[in-house]
Design a binder for these strands. Structure first.
Lengths: 198, 198
DNA sequence: GAGTTCCTGTACCGAACGGTACATTTGTGT
DNA sequence: ACACAAATGTACCGTTCGGTACAGGAACTC
């Protein structure tokens, strides 16, 4: 019996659902759209997600949360080489958001009332991202308050870069802004690096 | 005959429409919602905006564009005291976006497919905002390339601050980020201020 | 005050919405 | 081969969607 490939197919539908929600938003992604995006009929969709669209979005958010935890948050939180950890975060984030062509679903959800049902998930996502960066900066000898401020600014900068790159339809905008955010953080690590010798 | 208060009522409905679109997004703002928000029946709505929701959104965008041109862009473009012009921009923007509680409709529209019909309006809005700031910084003796980069970063930072403040449900985040964006720009003006005496 | 023009609420349209029911297909364990 | 359960496609549910038609009401002209 075992898995009976039930969870497998449900899980494999999630990325397609995520992309559909990204493209059309929560309200704009009708069941027809979601059905076409996944290649699954309504029957299958409701078999996997009895709670309808809302459960689909929850699954997508859980998937995103898991990916970020593994690929972004944990490496930052456990970093031994802060500058390197920050560098690979920017690299991974650039790839993930496709240089700004791909939207941040969590950020978008927070912008209008359709995301109200997911408010705590949204808040936790950003709160953890910020504290992960801050924690990493502190390893790099940046004082806690400055680290938090810089982390906040970095996450905000990434979100802003997505909005702007989408609006201007120009990937280079995204790269320029992230490059500068990156050097701001590495500069901060460098600035406090020698001030407190062991 | 004259205006026959036709234009008056159409114009007076626009702010309510704008707020409804902000809250619910383009797809989420149904005619019922728009009707309640404006206090106008469907008949009146279609009398003023024969093109339906799309024309309503166009009117809203035109209104926003006009407000920003008058209150934000022109003052920047004509600034004689750059530092002061930048300061009042941040002040006005903070008030306009209600410390991040209020969403940037133009930015939101660009994030999903529902805004595709307004792509050029969206692009022009951000392009002009960036070049207005850049122009203002150049008056402050900042070199053109640096001015453009800083301007891009400022607009992006404002958009990111909105996303983050909404997600965290915390206005202070918005204020912190904007304060820092502000000082980055004034620092830039200060840095090049004395380097090129008349 | 009649005539005209604009405005507005109501009723209604077909289409699409989210969601359900169910018969059928598909796959698997024994 | 058989039985049984999961997965699926289809038809359908009531509701709401964006949009239209239109009759009556207000307001202005003459």
């Amino acid at each position: 019996m075992k898995t009976r490939r039930a969870l497998t197919d449900r899980a494999s539908a999630v990325p397609a659902l995520a992309e559909a929600f990204r493209e059309h938003g929560f309200e704009g992604a009708s069941l027809t759209v979601l059905s076409q995006a996944t290649g699954l009929g309504k029957g299958s969709l409701y078999n996997f997600f009895p709670g309808g669209k809302e459960e689909m979005m929850e699954a997508v958010l859980a998937d995103i949360d898991h990916w970020f935890a593994e690929s972004i948050f944990l490496p930052l939180e456990r970093a031994e080489d802060p500058a390197q950890a920050i560098a690979s975060m920017f690299e991974d984030v650039t790839a993930y958001f496709r240089s700004g062509r791909r939207v941040c679903l969590v950020g978008c959800l927070g912008l209008n009332t359709s995301g109200a049902a997911f408010a705590v998930t949204i808040r936790d996502y950003f709160a953890r991202w910020i504290s992960a960066i801050a924690q990493c900066l502190e390893v790099g000898k940046v004082p806690p308050d400055a680290a938090r401020q810089l982390a906040e600014e970095a996450v905000s900068g990434i979100q802003g870069a997505i909005v702007l790159a989408r609006a201007l339809e120009d990937e280079t905008t995204f790269h320029r802004i992230l490059r500068r955010q990156h050097s701001t953080l590495t500069d901060a690590i460098g600035a406090w690096a020698g001030s407190q010798a062991p």
